[in-house]
């Protein structure tokens, strides 16, 4: 019995020391990490909502599970970071919707599908077909890259649903 207590105490002490060390490193690094996270998205947010004074990440409810982050461009609109399953790999994109329900921004951040086909979703033509549409409008898929673009359309629908819940 004494042995087990000895073992448990030793392990507990080591774990406590480990925890303390990590708490120290975490304190030191977490403000820098937070800043970097927002900085990565900030350039995109600024491009979509140039008139906003402040950008912040907000909490949200999403039934589809594809909307990963939601950001508010204070006073101007909302942007959503969405990840969907494309043909071979995931596709991540950001879609921005302003206060009046108009899609004002769309940018694909990661796509790894067939070059020339699925990869077309990253082309300006697709973005141009999306920007300007209203929340109630339908977005068309691209022929030849049906799987990738259909996945994105579903992702945009999910973002729209979150948008409606935030308004």
């Amino acid at each position: 019995m004494k042995k087990i207590i000895h073992l448990t105490v030793f392990l507990a002490i080591i774990s406590a020391l480990a925890g303390a060390t990590l708490a120290f490193v975490n304190n030191m690094t977490s403000p820098i990490i937070e800043e970097r996270k927002i900085a990565a998205v900030k350039t995109t947010l600024e491009a979509i909502f140039p008139t906003a004074s402040e950008y912040k990440e907000i909490s949200f409810v999403d039934a589809s599970g594809t909307v990963k982050n939601a950001y508010e461009a204070v006073g101007v609109g909302y942007a959503f970071n969405v990840t969907v399953q494309g043909y071979k790999d995931v596709i991540t994109f950001i879609v921005g919707i302003d206060g009046s329900g108009k899609i004002v921004g769309f940018k694909v951040n990661y796509v790894n599908d067939t070059p020339g086909l699925g990869s077309k979703v990253a082309d300006p033509e697709f973005a141009n077909s999306i920007i300007g549409k209203n929340v109630g409008d339908k977005v068309d898929t691209i022929s030849g890259s049906t799987v990738s673009s259909a996945a994105i359309v579903k992702g945009i629908d999910a973002a729209k649903a979150v948008y409606q819940s935030l308004k």
């Binding site: 490193v25 690094t29 820098i32």
Partner: peptide
């Protein structure tokens, strides 16, 4: 610790 330092 290394992971946090690299992230920062």
């Amino acid at each position: 610790a290394v992971e946090l330092l690299i992230k920062a």
